[in-house]
């Protein structure tokens, strides 16, 4: 079984995010970028499936400018077999991503597609679901356990109030939650080998997809700085402030 993993290049979670002076977007110029943590978990799960014999090949795909090859190489260093970059200038919105991935799935015919449940930059949490709908395939989102069982997969999901286990018929779509696994550290020889693993570059046109944005980014602003606390003299004063200043009562 082939496993396809979609990965995204995002701002490194250690970096303090800065907003551009004109509030048009987050400032990503010369900022350290990294593999989205949920995507890293997806890669790890796919590699474990391969190591356990449940999967035969792990293909990793990323969408973006040439720089996103760095993240594909990181995934290859973690154990993926080959990479596909879909070259786009800008980072397309989720529906475009899902459409591009759907075309890759049609070409590659993987038994399982694993994605992070969301990227830490946009926090949309929708690409996996859209992909499932476009392909008309079963989806198991927020997975905290994935077990291949013959021609189906059991996915344990973290839902409000507990765990839910679904049995999905393969081919299927899985999105990863934080507790699915703990990604490994890349080994030095694998980082070296990753350079030589195949990496195909395609364009949206190659895949017959026209990118269309349905949303417009109006403004980005930094969260308000937290104000220093104050000490109140009495419970009455506290209630008064909660009612009239904070307006929470």
């Amino acid at each position: 079984m082939k496993v396809l993993v979609a990965v995204k290049r995002v701002i490194d979670y250690n970096v303090k995010v800065r907003v551009k002076p004109d509030n048009s977007d987050v400032d990503l110029a010369n900022v350290k970028m990294a593999l989205n943590p949920f995507c890293e978990i997806a890669v790890e799960e796919a590699v474990r499936l391969k190591e356990s014999g449940a999967a035969s090949e792990v293909v990793v795909v990323s969408i973006g400018p040439k720089a996103c090859q760095e993240q594909i190489r990181t995934a290859l260093a973690l154990g993926a077999d080959r990479g596909i970059q879909i070259e786009t200038e800008e980072l397309p919105e989720s529906l475009n991503v899902a459409k591009l991935l759907a075309k890759v799935v049609e070409e590659e015919q993987p038994g399982l597609v694993i994605l992070g449940k969301q990227s830490i930059d946009a926090d949309n949490n929708q690409t996996g679901q859209m992909l499932g709908a476009l392909l008309n395939r079963p989806q198991g989102t927020f997975a905290s356990e994935v077990k291949i069982d013959g021609d189906s997969v059991n996915v344990t999901r973290e839902v409000d109030g507990g765990l839910q286990t679904l049995n999905l018929k393969l081919p299927a779509i899985v999105t990863t939650d934080l507790r699915l696994n703990e990604p490994r550290y890349a080994k030095l020889p694998d980082i070296m080998k990753a350079k030589r693993k195949p990496l195909d570059v395609k364009t949206p046109a190659d895949l017959g997809v026209e990118l269309k944005n349905h949303t417009r980014l109006l403004k980005v602003s930094a969260p308000a700085e937290r104000q220093a606390g104050i000490r109140v003299a009495s419970v009455d004063e506290l209630i008064d402030k909660l009612k009239n200043e904070a307006k929470v009562l």
Binding site: E70, T74, A77, Y185, L188, I191, M192, A194, K195
Partner: peptide, 22 residues
């Protein structure tokens, strides 16, 4: 021959993780 800055950067990034976290 096969070594360049891009590879060096990838190596430093991964070593940095092991150093900081382990």
């Amino acid at each position: 021959d096969d070594i360049n800055f891009e590879l060096a950067s990838a190596i430093l990034t991964e070593a940095g993780k092991l150093g900081s976290e382990v």
